[in-house]
């Protein structure tokens, strides 16, 4: 090991990703932002920033729907709760939304399950294509990790998004994708043998996989997806009297630590 990489980087920061030639032009992943990308909608630009690719209008509608169907303006949902508290204690809009976004990369919901869900579908698809049995793959995963991301759901028995997402995928012509059909096959197996349900993470991951996204690309695509649900919560918190939402009495702290003692 040595500092050779630092010395190399010291001379110049070489990149193909982009540059702002201030007062002149901006290059965005090989295209002029103002001239070649100005007719794109922002969502299309965002996906291009991640993958370097443009998606078809139908694909865009599908990817957009995944964002839409996850936008729940309910402050009992943890990232929204944080945004609402932030608004209620009169933090700033950006700090409030970023505080909610920062806890969207969780282990029991959000980005870690999303990332593992797409990885499981991609690995399983490859293994099946290589001749392995689906039931063996599922049982091996359950034995090793006790969970398959995208199946089962904390807090709720059913995921109300599933029906809508499957219908949307059918309407737009994506329900026959190799990973989408696999996600449903896994669901049928788990429902029959393990009494597990499917949640939207498995189906959304299947769409990402069928659209050729890597797990990293898929996470980046999903990263802002909770934010539309957070904004109403922030606004609601900001509109209510300061410090008043979800009030908690001293006696509501359920203490189970050591008895009173002297320092």
């Amino acid at each position: 090991m040595s500092n050779k990489h630092l010395r190399q980087q010291e001379t110049a920061h070489e990149t193909a990703m982009g540059k702002a030639f201030l007062c002149e032009r901006v290059v965005f992943r090989g295209k002029d932002l103002h001239q070649e990308l100005s007719e794109r909608d922002w969502f299309s630009l965002y996906l291009y920033s991640i993958t370097g690719k443009f998606y078809t209008p139908e694909q865009m509608r599908m990817l957009n729907y995944i964002w839409v169907c996850t936008s729940y303006p309910d402050p009992s949902i943890w990232p929204n709760h944080v945004a609402e508290l932030a608004g209620n204690v009169r933090s700033t809009p950006s700090l409030s939304l970023m505080s909610g976004l920062s806890i969207s990369e969780a282990s029991i919901y959000g980005r870690r399950p999303d990332r593992r869900a797409i990885d499981f579908l991609q690995r399983t698809r490859k293994a099946l294509d290589a001749g392995e049995e689906l039931s063996d793959l599922i049982n091996a995963a359950l034995k090793k990790y006790r969970v398959i991301y995208g199946y089962g759901r904390p807090l709720a028995r059913l995921d109300e998004r599933v029906l809508h997402l499957v219908k949307k995928a059918r309407d737009l012509g994506f329900a026959d994708g190799a990973h989408f059909t696999l996600a449903l096959e896994i669901y049928h197996y788990l429902k029959k043998n393990k009494r597990l349900t499917i949640n939207v993470a498995a189906l959304a991951a299947a769409i990402g996989a069928d659209f050729g996204m890597s797990p990293e690309e898929y996470q980046l695509y999903l990263t802002p997806c909770f934010i539309a649900g957070m904004v109403p919560c922030y606004l609601d918190g900001a509109a209510k009297p300061e410090g008043s939402v979800f009030p908690m009495r001293c006696e509501s702290i359920q203490y189970s630590g050591p008895e009173r003692r002297s320092w």
Partner: peptide, 17 residues
């Protein structure tokens, strides 16, 4: 009136004014 939404903790307890 205690609330079903209280937090469980071994770190902290409070007595009210």
């Amino acid at each position: 009136m205690s609330s079903k939404y209280g937090y469980r903790t071994k770190v902290w307890s409070e007595e009210p004014e």
